[in-house]
Simulated scan of single mutants.
Amino acid sequence: MKTITTTKACTKQLLDKLQENISWAQMEVKSHSISIVKGWLTNDRFFIKGEPIPRSRTSPSKALDSGTAQTLKTLNRWNNSGWKYFKSSMYSISTVKMNWTVGRQHCRKSEADLVVINSKEEMIFVHGLISNLGAWLGLTDTENEGVWKWVDGKELTTSYWMKGQPNNGGRNGNDDCGVIVFGKAVLQSWNDNQCNYLSYVICEKSVA
């Protein structure tokens, strides 16, 4: 009799815990936050490999409100077009080389801009996208030599320059655009280069 009572008590505890988890999940589904979508996208490694955005384990088309469901559809469409997801942004690397100015125009055609690095984790992710000669950053000191700014107008605070960089091209004195160099250590891979130099382009657009 004692064994049966104990078993019933354990079963009740498990059911209570299950109900608690279901209630929590329901509250999350009702939220309009993009974090729901990011939760269903599981992890960022999917997008480094360029795999399709995974479907929800609980059929998001039925569980999500129309606004969030549309966001998920948009992410799927971008991913199928070659964009990669990380945190709250989508990224795309060009298949042809272009100078910094043309590269920025290229990004803007997709309602994006040249990539802005906000964290070490983002730097590691973006570095995984580059190949061959590297890719342009949305970083320049064209306005004021030595004062590096991102294309969103913010001044550079955390950097990942190669040793001895930026040096403004030494004697040339005309290296005003930032680029990620392929084959260098991830956190020491930036170089300043002439803006008319041809390189691949990484575009970034926010989905938050």
Rank of each mutant, 00 (worst) to 15 (best):
S89G: 04
N118M: 05
G169E: 07
W190H: 00
E155R: 14
G183V: 07
I117H: 01
D192I: 07
W78D: 12
S131K: 12
I130W: 06
W148V: 03
M90A: 10
W150N: 01
W150P: 02
K84T: 02
N144P: 00
K163A: 14
N191Q: 10
E111L: 03
W100K: 01
Q188V: 07
E121A: 11
N99G: 04
S89D: 10
N80I: 08
K163P: 06
N172Y: 10
D175K: 11
V115H: 00
K109L: 13
N80L: 13
R104D: 15
N144E: 12
L187R: 08
E122W: 09
R171L: 10
D192G: 04
G170T: 02
K84H: 15
S89Y: 11
H106D: 11
V147H: 09
W190G: 02
V116R: 04
R108K: 15
Y160D: 00
N191Y: 09
T157K: 12
A135Y: 05
G169P: 11
A112D: 06
S89C: 11
E143A: 10
V96E: 15
F86K: 03
E111A: 12
G82D: 13
K87S: 04
K97D: 07
N174L: 09
I180F: 03
S110D: 08
S92H: 15
I117R: 00
V96Q: 12
V96M: 10
D113K: 05
N174Y: 05
L137R: 02
F182P: 03
M98F: 03
D175A: 15
G164H: 13
G82Q: 10
G183P: 03
M123Q: 15
W78T: 09
W78Y: 14
S92R: 15
W78A: 09
G153R: 06
G183Q: 13
S81N: 14
V116Y: 02
H106R: 15
I130G: 02
